[in-house]
């Protein structure tokens, strides 16, 4: 028996716990993201949000619990294998390859489906030529969609900050992910850039039909985009629901504003 594809969650996390030494960074975390969902993960600083993302992308191995991407458990897989399963992400502090052209930034992200290795690159086989041409064409198309073509030969470090964010998202999408993790995409952007980012994420969500899970501190970004929000604090899930429910949730208010009984 197989579950129909549209019913199977893109991401399923079961009882995820992560300890760093004596510190419990994430504790008994559960979530199911259905295809096409746009969901948010919020919490105060140091709540363990990025740790959850690092666990999902395979950068850490969980102490306990399981992570399934489209039904496939990722336990023991290296990050590049997890990415090949269809998980792409961006980083809190932009992590582009700064001294490689914008076009090459996209090209290198195609490693998971290169289809050739050292030998082919040395002899320039037919397969190599075909794949390189395809990759270059697709990368150019992607840059075109994101209106980044004019920067194709620039180094990312010379681009404005907002453009770098956009490029990082474009690079993540070039992996054709099922699940896109955005780690504070609005960090460091000014308010007009943020409005553009909101439009961009909404557009990506429709255009690429990708499931998006995002961490964000800018509440208007989260409130405008996400249909479901999860709140964590000290690694524990303290609330879950739609934007209105979260806004009025007493535990969330306590976590963000402090306990007024003190």
């Amino acid at each position: 028996m197989s579950i129909p594809t549209e019913k199977r969650p893109v991401l399923e996390i079961r009882n995820l716990t992560q300890n760093f030494g004596g510190l419990r960074a994430v504790s008994d975390f559960n979530i199911q993201l259905m295809p096409g969902e746009l969901s948010g993960l919020i919490g105060p600083n140091g709540a363990g949000k990025t740790t959850v993302f690092n666990l999902v992308s395979g950068f850490y191995q969980p102490s306990e619990g399981a992570i399934l991407i489209d039904g496939v458990p990722t336990g023991g897989l290296k990050p590049h294998k997890v990415t090949a399963l269809g998980v792409a992400r961006t980083f809190q502090n932009i992590r582009l390859w700064n001294e490689m052209t914008v076009l090459d930034n996209i090209r290198v992200a195609q490693h998971y489906r290169l289809g050739y290795g050292f030998f082919h690159s040395a002899v320039r086989s037919k397969r190599y030529m075909r794949r390189e041409a395809e990759i270059a064409r697709e990368a150019a198309e992607l840059l075109d969609i994101f209106h980044l073509t004019q920067y194709a030969d620039e180094f990312p470090k010379n681009l404005p900050y907002g453009t770098q964010r956009k490029l990082e998202i474009a690079r993540a999408l070039s992996i054709h992910p099922k699940l896109l993790l955005l780690d504070e995409p609005a960090a460091g952007l000014n308010s007009s850039d943020i409005q553009e980012l909101i439009r961009l994420i909404r557009w990506i969500h429709e255009m690429f039909a990708v499931t998006i899970w995002m961490i964000e501190h800018q509440m208007d970004v989260i409130m405008q985009l996400c249909t479901r929000i999860k709140v964590i604090d000290f690694g524990e899930t303290i609330a879950e629901g739609n934007p209105e429910e979260i806004c009025n949730h007493p535990a969330v208010i306590t976590a963000y504003l402090g306990d007024d009984t003190i």
Binding site: H80, A84, R95, M100, H111, Y112, G117, S121, I175
Partner: peptide, 24 residues
């Protein structure tokens, strides 16, 4: 080659390379 550009990606940001599907 795109394959070999992975080497430069490792130099510039190894974490990003691994997470962007380069088998470092």
């Amino acid at each position: 080659s795109t394959f070999g550009k992975g080497v430069i990606a490792i130099c510039q940001d190894e974490v990003a390379a691994e997470i962007m599907s380069v088998n470092t």
